[in-house]
């Protein structure tokens, strides 16, 4: 259904105004306003549809030293007999930060290359941060790694995703032992299973805790509070403008 005269937004229809921002990757679609999703639509905005988009893939050149790192990484992967296009899903440059989206099965190979290749030398991993995108079907759970090169004074980001149905990501403890606790923390809060971790157990929450608290479908909890006669709902029940 792509329109030849409007190649940038293939989903746009002639009878609708263009979306505010069609660029980027769709991660969620929201309806209505004020986070009202229980009961009838009293806001009058029930028909409103908004798409949430994160910055999408960036074409070359990336600018600065980003191209050099990307070239070196692709070259080094080539030498190992890996096809860079299969390993690196996409490359995003946003706000002066370089992100490689890596296919999860290649993560340890990529991390080892980034650490050991003399032209890359990302010696320090600052751990892993999980992000949960329930609306990003098939890629619900993201693991985000930030690697720092002290030698070259650079910082890059690796991002891998796993579906909710198969929440497995290879562990990086072999390559970066510092990720031991960080991966346990991400498992604890998001339920991402890091295959190959020496002892993947809960670290912050009690061992017998049920559920993964940082997932978006896990409620914050809390009780309503009376203040000067008014009943203030718990924080996760309050009006949301997001």
């Amino acid at each position: 259904m792509s329109e030849p005269n409007n190649p940038e937004s293939p989903e746009a229809r002639d009878d609708l105004p263009a979306q505010h921002d069609d660029a980027g990757d769709l991660i969620a679609t929201r309806r209505g306003m004020f986070g009202a999703n229980n009961g009838g639509d009293t806001s009058g905005y029930g028909g409103l549809v908004r798409s949430v988009r994160l910055p999408g893939a960036t074409p070359r050149p990336y600018g600065g030293w980003f191209d050099e790192v990307a070239d070196e990484l692709e070259g080094a992967l080539d030498e190992q007999g890996l096809v860079p296009e299969n390993v690196i899903g996409k490359t995003v440059v946003d706000r002066d930060e370089l992100t490689f989206h890596i296919e999860r099965e290649y993560l340890p190979a990529v991390a080892r290359t980034l650490r050991d290749d003399p032209a890359l030398r990302f010696e320090l991993c600052t751990g892993v941060s999980g992000v949960h995108f329930p609306g990003d079907k098939g890629r619900e759970l993201h693991a985000v790694y930030h690697l720092r090169s002290i030698t070259h004074n650079r910082l890059i980001r690796l991002e891998v995703s796993a579906p909710d149905a198969d929440p497995h990501v290879p562990s990086l403890v072999e390559v970066y032992p510092t990720n031991d606790w960080h991966e346990r923390e991400t498992y604890d809060f998001f339920g991402l299973v890091f295959d190959g971790h020496p002892a993947l157990t809960r670290i912050i929450m009690p061992d017998d805790w049920q559920g993964f608290p940082q997932r978006k479908d896990y409620p914050l909890g809390g009780i309503p509070v009376e203040y000067k006669g008014a009943r203030i709902p718990a924080p996760d029940q309050r009006r949301s403008y997001s």
Binding site: I27, V52, R53, S129, G130, S240, Y241, S242
Partner: peptide, 12 residues
């Protein structure tokens, strides 16, 4: 995510 609240904040 473009909203008025942080979508995720992680402290290293």
């Amino acid at each position: 995510d473009g909203g008025t609240r942080p979508y995720r904040v992680h402290f290293r």
